[in-house]
């Protein structure tokens, strides 16, 4: 469904991503793990076109999207949940979710989707009228995911959903991510929390200084001695 070939990202002269190639199949959850500064977020931003790639190609559903403007991505079915959540702090929870459906015009279905998302996250329903900026970090992450789902995407790009959250909240967020994936949603997950990411996904890629160094089924990566030593603290 998503095919990334030879993608490169550079900031000035510094190469953050050095020609990486990977793919995500339809209905699959794939984890891209790696340490801080490995180039994970740059990769995701380049795919979502929030950042310009220095080279390489990205195909989504067979279509080349390397030159598509970022605001057209959601209409193509690709939804980014940005790093650090990126909710609209001075809009209410309900307004944030409504913003997620900005490009859609099918009002009746939008309301159904809203109820479905409140079903995933009852917390958001309770805080419907509250400003997003006053929510806790975990609730903001729920809101960011909910908002992305409001665009009815075919695929979710999640950038560090566990970042800065309490362990209990991290588990809750991942429960929802797994539930969303179970509905058939394709997910590319970027995480520093390697264990949780690999436990939730089918396949994984390990990134190190801008390159993919290891790949395989998530279960086998969890058993890989190198991964265990470097990312699972064993």
């Amino acid at each position: 469904m998503l095919e990334v070939t030879g993608l490169r990202v550079a900031y000035g002269g510094i190469q953050a991503v050095r020609s990486i190639t990977f793919h995500v199949n339809q209905g699959e959850m794939v984890a891209l793990i790696g340490a801080n500064g490995a180039g994970k977020t740059s990769t995701l931003k380049a795919i979502a076109r929030v950042l310009d790639a220095a080279g390489g190609d990205v195909h989504f559903c067979g279509e080349k999207i390397t030159r598509v403007p970022p605001h057209a991505m959601i209409s193509k079915g690709l939804a980014l949940v940005p790093e650090g959540r990126g909710v609209f702090p001075r809009l209410s929870v309900a307004e944030n979710l409504a913003m997620g459906a900005f490009v859609r015009h099918d009002k009746a279905v939008i309301n159904d989707d809203l109820e479905r998302i409140y079903g995933y996250f009852p917390r958001l329903k309770e805080r419907e009228k509250q400003l997003a900026g006053t929510l806790s970090g975990g609730e903001q992450q729920m809101l960011a995911i909910g908002r992305a789902l409001m665009g009815r995407p075919k695929m979710l790009l999640l950038d560090e959903p566990s970042m800065g959250l309490a362990p209990l909240m991290v588990n809750k967020i991942f429960e929802v991510i797994r539930a969303v994936a179970a509905t058939g949603m394709t997910v590319l997950l970027i995480e520093q929390n390697a264990r949780l990411a690999l436990q939730s996904s089918q396949r994984g890629y390990v990134m190190e200084s801008g390159e993919i160094t290891l790949t395989g089924a998530s279960a086998s990566l969890l058993d890989d001695p190198k991964v265990r030593a470097a990312y699972l603290g064993e």
Binding site: A48, V50, P69, P70, H71, A72, M73, I74, S75, A79, L80, V81, P82, G86, V87, F88, P89, R90, L91, M99, G100, F102, V103, A144, R147, A148, G151
Partner: peptide, 12 residues
Amino acid sequence: EDEIAAKAVGIN
């Protein structure tokens, strides 16, 4: 409020 998020929800 947030320009990247605005792009992500499809705002030009």
